[in-house]
Structures are given as structure tokens and as C-alpha cells.
Design a protein around this nucleic acid. Sequence first.
DNA 1: TATTGTTATACTCTATAACTATA
DNA 2: TATAGTTATAGAGTATAACAATA
Lengths: 150, 150
Amino acid sequence: MTKLNQSYGFLFGKILQQMENKFAETLTPFNIDARQYGVLLFVKENPYSTQKLIAEKLHIDRTTMVSHVDHLEKLQFVERTKNPNDRRAYSLLITEEGNSVLETCWGFLLNTESEVLFTLNEQEKQSLKITLLKVWSSLQNQGGKFYDCT
Amino acid sequence: MTKLNQSYGFLFGKILQQMENKFAETLTPFNIDARQYGVLLFVKENPYSTQKLIAEKLHIDRTTMVSHVDHLEKLQFVERTKNPNDRRAYSLLITEEGNSVLETCWGFLLNTESEVLFTLNEQEKQSLKITLLKVWSSLQNQGGKFYDCT
DNA sequence: TATTGTTATACTCTATAACTATA
DNA sequence: TATAGTTATAGAGTATAACAATA
């Protein structure tokens, strides 16, 4: 037993990297990366969001957000509609096509995670998810920020 | 409950990012980053390694490894000694100072992890570590690669 | 001919500062 | 005066290709 794998961070990192690599492959044919997938999912779950809000919630710089939304708009996965109450800001909406890509990729994401966690039985997976949610909730309540999504 | 936090990858990512941010702060005064800490720990646990071997095991490109080792050597945390059996390659060794930094930072790393996992009791933490080790072992046996360390 | 380490270079991702149009 | 979005630019971090020394 080496010291390296006594570190939670090390173990989280290894497992996450496997998931990220597999999921990135999945997304390639759809022409988006994991960040853009996260933005798309956020827009679906929070319609009429401004770019500023998404940037804050996903902890992505607002200038970076511009290029993500540019990309998603060019693919016609989101629409930029002008907010009548504040003409400086956009109200973002997911399109039907964007929604369909999201649904497809969500299935692939779950598959990817199952592949990486194949060694765990259902009870172990449930227990792991409960633990992770507990930790994440505690960090949010602590004033921890809502970081970028996979 | 949003879909985002039903994803293991999303939850792993959030928790890992908290750990990484905190640990990066810890390392700042020692003038190294998390990758270099990983290299240093690997050199300690695998003395006389070549740069090539470390690069392969930690899944870092060998040209990137050059600059990591350059940096660690400049700080006198590792020594490059010539391998008499293969004069193309170095045999890397950790120095006393490197070892002392490593020990100090290891303590900080464990503290950081405890801070992030503060909401879990000892039994939950043990159970989490066992689960993570199980997943990581299964990935290694699958031919999964040994990725970069935190 | 293949391999270790090196260098120069390019590419990706992100952040900083300055700009515009609104508020 | 402050804010949403944009643009141009610079900075990490990493990867690719070509080279020297050695196998």
C-alpha cells in the first residue's frame, strides 16, 4: 500500500479522470465538451437564465461563458432571446434539438458512470451516492461555491 | 433535486475541486503544485526511477516531466544522478529537504481532506475509502492507466 | 534502429482589461 | 456609476516534432 492511494483526493482524481475521458469520447460526435454539456443542462433546468447567472452558478468566467454559448447557439442547441426587462441581458432557452442531445448524452453519461463503477453492487452505489451528496451539501451550506460541472 | 447532482461525475468533480483548491493554497509557500507534489512522492516511494518511468506511471508526458523535474531539482528537492547501467537515463532520488517538504505537506493534505469531509463520521469515511479503493483497483486490473496524482 | 532526455513550438483552456449598450 | 455582454490579448498547462547522446 503506497501513500498515494491513501489519499481521498488521489482516489477521487483517478476515478473522475476515467469518467471524464469516457464521457468526453461520448460527446465528441455531438461536437460539445463536458463544460458545454453542463451549460446546456443548466439552461434546461433554469430557463430564461442570463449568461451572468450561469457563469456564477457553474463558476465559469463570464468571458468564457460567451464562447460556450456562442458554440451552443451555432449548433442551435440554445437560443439567445432578449430579456425585455433588461435589454443588456439575454434570456437563454434550450431548443428542441438541444434538449434531444441532452437526453441522449444523459443516458451515455449514466452508462459511463456505471462502467467505471461496475465493481460496486447496487447497494454500494446507493451508499456512495448518499455519502457524496451529504459531503456536497455540507460544502454548499458552508458557503462553498457551485463549481463547474462535468 | 436537479439532474446535475444525480451524476457521480458531477459530485466527484465538486468535492475534488474543493480539495484541490485548498491543497493548492497549502503548496504555494513551498513553491510547487499538486503535480510536482505527486512526482516528488513517487520519487520517494520509487527511488532510482527514470523520468520516463515516472511519466508513464503518473500519465504525464515525458516532455512535461522534464520541466517538473527541472523545477524540483532547482529547489533541491530531488537529485538527478546518472544511471551507470544506462547512461541515457537519470536515476532520481529525493533529497533530505524534499523529504521534509513531502512529510509536512502530507500532513496538510490529510487535514485538507478532513476539512472537506468534515460532515462524515469516522465510519462513513472508512467506508468511503474502502469503496474508492475497490473502484480504483478494479480499474487498474482492467488495464486502466495510472493517472496523474493530486 | 530504438530509446532517454531535451528543446522549440503549437495548441487548448482560461483569465484580464478595455470596450458598448444599457441600467 | 454600475452591470451584461463582448472582444482582444495574455497566461497557464500540456502535447507534438525534431534533435543529441546512448543503447
